[in-house]
Amino acid sequence: MRNVNIIACFFLFGFAFSQNDKVGINTENPSAMLDIVTRANNDATKALEINNSSNIELLKVTNAGKVGINIGTNTPAAVLHINSEGIKNIRHQNLPVLNETDYTLPFNNLGVSSNGNAVGIPTTVKYLYYQNGNIFPVTYNTTNNTGGFSLSNTNQYINLPIRNDAGLKGNTIGMIFGTDTNATINGQAVSNVQYILIPEPGVYLFEFYGTARCNRFNNTQNYTFNGQIEVNTIFASASGTTYTTDTIFRGRLDGMRNDNGATGNTSYSLANPQTLTVAYQTTQANQKVALFFNYAGGDNGFSNNECYFNIPAGANFSYYFIISKL
C-alpha cells in the first residue's frame, strides 16, 4: 500500500517515468534523464529553482531560457544573469593562460589570469600623431619667397616627412622611422625620402591635413593667373626603395587668394586645406610607407621653388599626420 501511495503522489505532482530510466516533470514523455517543462508561457515562470537552507534563491531557470545566479527573487534580465556582489562570479581552472599580447584575433579581451579567474584586458588605442610646427621646407625664405618647391611639373614629387623629432606627439603603435637617400616613386627619382615602417600586420587609418601656398618668386613677379593649380597628396607604399602610389587625394590652389581666401594679386593659396584619409591594410611586418605632394595640372608658372607648406594665421602647424590601428 505504501508503494502505491508514493506512485500516486508522483503522478499528482506531474512526475512521469519512462521505460528507459528518464524522469519527466510536467511532461509524460521525458526526452532526457531529467526533463522539466514549465506550467506557464511567460518569461518570469521558473522551470527550476534551487534555494539554500535559509530559503534564499541561489539559482533559477525561467521559461524563456534565462539563468539567474545569486539574484534573489529578481527575474533574470539576460540569458545569464549573475550577481557577483561580495563574491567572485566566475572562476576557471586548468585552462590555458594567455598573455596580454595574445589577446588578438581570434581571441577577445576576456581572458583567464594565472590563478584561474576571468579577467578583462583593457583596450589601448594604438596611434601615431605627428605635427609639423614649422613651415615646410625649412629652407623657405619668407622674405624673398625662395628655397621652397615648384608646382609646374607632374613628374616632381615632394616628400612630406614624418620624423622622430619634436613634432612627434605620440607613437604607441611603435612606428619606425628611416630615410632613403635615393629612391623612386612611380618611376621618378627622389632623394632623402623620410619614411615610416609599420611594425605589425593589420589595418591602419592614415589622416593628413595641411595648407600650401605659392608667393611671388624673389618678390619680383606680379602674377595675374585667373585659373587654378590642381595638386595631389599621395600615400605611397614601398618595396625596397621603389615607391608606388596607393591613394591620391586631389586638392587645388585657387588663384589670387591669401591664407583667408580673400582675393589678392601676389599669391596662390589653398582655399580648402589639403587632406588625405586612407584605410590601409598590410599583411607583412615592417611595411614601408611615405607621403608625397605634387603638381597635377592647371596653371604651371610656379617653377622657381616659391611654394611651401605654411602656417596659417591662428594655427600652430603647417601639417599634421595621424595614424591609428583599427
Rank of each mutant, 00 (worst) to 15 (best):
A313F: 03
N316G: 07
V193A: 08
N153M: 03
D299G: 02
T62Y: 03
N305R: 08
I121P: 00
F208C: 09
N171H: 06
P96E: 11
V193Y: 03
I162V: 15
A271G: 13
A296K: 05
T123W: 11
Y195L: 03
T263V: 14
P122Q: 12
I198T: 02
R213M: 10
I196R: 00
F17H: 06
Q19Y: 13
I311T: 04
A77P: 02
G133A: 15
G86H: 07
I176Q: 12
V125T: 13
I173E: 08
D21N: 14
S237W: 06
L197Q: 05
A212M: 11
N304V: 02
T27L: 11
F107Y: 15
T181A: 14
G24Q: 08
G261F: 04
E85F: 07
R91T: 14
N164D: 14
V193I: 12
T101Q: 13
L276E: 04
F217R: 02
F10A: 09
N258T: 04
G187A: 10
N300R: 10
N316L: 00
T154H: 01
G120W: 08
Y127H: 10
V119P: 00
I158R: 00
A212L: 03
R91N: 11
A285L: 05
P137Y: 02
G261E: 04
T247P: 00
A32K: 14
T104R: 08
I198P: 00
G148M: 03
F136H: 05
I69Y: 08
N20G: 06
G178H: 10
N159R: 08
N305F: 06
G167S: 04
C307V: 07
D43E: 14
Y223I: 15
D259S: 14
G147Q: 02
D102M: 13
T283P: 03
K66A: 11
G116V: 07
S114P: 02
F293A: 00
V61A: 06
S269V: 00
N52W: 09
D254V: 13
R2V: 15
N219C: 09
F10Q: 11
T62W: 04
Q93V: 15
G68M: 05
T275E: 05
F235N: 09
T38I: 08
Y268W: 15
D259G: 13
N182D: 09
V289W: 01
V37P: 01
N83P: 01
T247H: 11
L48N: 09
V138L: 07
F302A: 08
N258L: 06
T179V: 14
Y204F: 13
I158V: 15
T277P: 02
P122R: 10
Y204R: 08
V289R: 01
N41D: 14
I135M: 04
D259A: 13
V125P: 00
N232T: 01
F225P: 01
I50S: 12
G261A: 09
A236K: 04
I25D: 03
N144W: 13
I7S: 14
I25W: 12
I87E: 07
Q228I: 11
H81G: 01
G14H: 05
P201Y: 00
R213P: 00
G298A: 13
T142Q: 06
R250I: 12
